[in-house]
Design a protein around this nucleic acid. Structure first.
Length: 602
DNA sequence: TTAGGGTTAG
């Protein structure tokens, strides 16, 4: 039986019964059961049928199978589809489905090739395929490429639909171009393409991510009016706002929004809880976070990987190894599968609590078992090695990344450059910098700040200032750049230059922060200017920057060596009165000179 | 098509 069935016969049958696709498909699966092994050609015939029947998921699975199991390139599948195509209006949908399959399986270039080839053959994909491809680029954070593809699409004469506009809004929000995102909203109205709830949610989330909760709330309120009564906030809208408040540290308002959400009849989902659990833990209240975990279970929502990851992360952060381990076991017990986040959280948690060997072992296990490693865990380990000045270890890990096909990113390079600068090996830092440029990674401000710091430590202040000037002309500088330079000038004894920068930064709209004041207070003390140091701390409070335990401990350390015990006690009492909690270094600073006296006497 | 969790600088 199987001998008499050939590919061409299958295709002929499919062609004959094209108007009875259900029947043709049943025939194909029947011969499949009879051990007929489908070739590319007959598979493609099946795919055409599935698309005609609008069974897209199965069509996608079939194409995915051709690419992933049989190892065919998207281009081969495209050829197969074209060859087995008998001429019917279902064909654009087939090609759209192929593009979708490519993006789903991560074949980014393949998807683009398919679109391009079809255009050259005069066989156009629809706007949906373009949207799918552009959405995929945004998911990969390839925003520059997104804009290029978008322009290309427009140049071929396509017009944007609501999904395209939503993608544009999404891209602009990712680039923090919020005002432009809002102007796209008005352009949509002008083009009579009505914004939907997704459009609003993206802008609202963009505002939240930039910390502009006021604007986000305003948009939520005006959504109805702005959309002519068509659009109302949904759970995504509320979750964005709740997350926004959590991230700026205002949990109380986040909770209020949560209550409001329930009042208007929108149910909280696992993301609502996940967001609030992280918010409370981030704000220092793990207890509240656990309460919410219980609450979500009571409401029939099962904590998922994200919730476990969050809580484990914060337990590690407060050095509760036992609690973190218990939750990890609970996770395994409940068969909640760990992901890359879990592994990097564990890696970081182990490192920060002193279990570096265990962290390295975990990393090897994850790599060995193909559990889906990414650059994160390696970056964490490399950074840890750099911090503990083990540059040989860091270098070895970088090698391991290459061996396992992991591409170093800006964080990898940033950690290495910073590490080499800090051990005084500027030459190696420059080598890494060159490698980064060769890998076409554009340095960001973090990298530049590390380089400036390296130059400062090398006492190459002139070069450091020169680099800063260049960056400034590109608008690339922040409070850290200034703090680094101020620290550099202080280190080389140029305290006047340091103060000149201090006054310059305000004029440029960079607000000084705790680190700025603490740096200057430290050096004023070092130069014996105790009164000026004290005055600066007053000025700090006056400018709304609250002195922390480092500010007080710096003063106490120097006062206890050079001033009267009464002055030290006065500082301690003031610290406590202002609600700053003395820590171990504070007490050490108060007590250690007395211990030295004791030692001298005995 | 949109929302939650992990990595770099002073």
């Amino acid at each position: 039986m199987s001998l008499s069935i050939t590919d061409s016969l299958v295709c002929r049958v499919v062609g004959k019964f094209w108007n009875s696709p259900q029947l043709a498909l049943e025939f194909c699966s029947w011969i499949g059961e009879k051990n007929f092994s489908h070739s590319l050609e007959s598979c493609c015939a099946v795919i055409h049928l599935l698309v005609k029947l609008r069974r897209f998921d199965e069509a996608l699975a079939c194409m995915g199978n051709l690419m992933c199991v049989r190892g065919l390139a998207p281009f081969d599948v495209l050829e197969g589809l074209i060859n087995s195509y008998e001429g019917d209006d279902s064909s654009p949908a087939v090609f759209d489905a192929l593009v979708r399959t490519c993006t789903q399986f991560g074949a980014t270039d393949g998807a683009y090739e398919v679109i391009k080839k079809l255009r050259m053959d005069g066989c156009w994909v629809t706007i949906h395929a373009w949207n799918n491809f552009m959405g995929h680029l945004l998911k990969l954070n390839e925003i520059d490429r997104f804009w290029k593809v978008y322009k290309e699409m427009i140049s071929y004469g396509y017009s944007e639909n609501v999904n395209t506009f939503n993608l544009i809004v999404y891209a602009l929000c990712k680039e923090c171009r919020l005002l432009e995102a809002i102007s796209v909203f008005y352009r949509m109205l002008k083009d009579e393409i009505w914004p939907n709830v997704v459009t609003f949610n993206m802008i609202i989330d963009g505002a939240c991510k930039m910390g502009n909760l006021e604007l986000a709330l305003k948009l939520v309120k005006k959504m109805g009016v702005m959309s002519g009564g068509c659009v109302r906030p949904n759970s995504v809208t509320y979750n964005c706002i709740i997350n926004g408040f959590c991230k700026i540290g205002n949990i109380a308002l986040a909770e209020e929004v949560h209550i409001e959400m329930t009042k208007v009849g929108i149910e909280s989902n696992e993301r609502t809880y996940g967001t609030l659990i992280d918010g409370h833990a981030r704000g220092g209240s793990l207890e509240e976070a656990f309460k919410l975990c219980n609450e979500m279970v009571e409401r029939g929502l099962i904590p998922n990987t994200v919730v476990y990851n969050t809580v484990i992360h914060w337990l590690y952060k407060v050095e509760d190894m036992e609690g973190a381990s218990l939750l990890l076991f609970d996770m395994i017990d409940k068969r909640i599968s760990p992901d890359q986040f879990t592994y990097s959280i564990l890696t970081k948690g182990l490192c920060r609590n002193g279990y570096v060997t265990e962290a390295l072992r975990l990393n090897n296990q994850v790599i060995g078992k193909n559990l889906g490693e990414d650059a994160f865990s390696h970056n964490i380990l490399i950074n840890y090695m750099c911090r503990s000045k083990n540059m040989a270890g860091a270098k070895q890990l970088l090698g391991s990344m290459f061996v396992h096909g992991l591409i170093p990113d800006l964080v990898t390079y940033g950690s290495l450059i910073d590490g080499y600068c800090k051990v005084g090996n500027v030459e190696h830092a420059v080598q890494i910098y060159d490698r980064m440029i060769k890998a076409e990674e554009n340095p960001n401000l973090v990298i530049y700040n590390s380089v400036i710091n390296g130059l400062c430590k090398e006492a190459a202040m002139d070069v450091a200032k020169l680099l800063t000037n260049v960056l400034q002309s590109m608008g690339l500088f922040d409070v850290i750049t200034y703090n680094t330079l101020i620290n550099g000038y202080c280190l080389s004894g140029k305290i006047e230059a340091a103060f000149a920068l201090f006054s310059e930064m305000r004029k440029l709209g960079i607000l000084e922060n705790r680190v700025t004041y603490n740096t200057l207070i430290n050096f004023l003390c070092k130069f014996g200017c105790f009164q000026q140091a004290k005055d600066l701390m007053k000025m700090m409070a006056h400018h709304g920057v609250i002195p922390d335990s480092i500010s007080y401990t710096t003063l106490i350390t120097h006062f206890s060596k050079n001033c009267t015990p009464e002055e030290v006690i006065e500082l301690h009492d003031e610290m406590v009165l202002k609600g700053v909690i003395p820590d171990r270094p504070t007490y050490r600073a108060i007590v250690s000179p007395l211990l030295q006296e004791d030692n001298a006497e005995t």
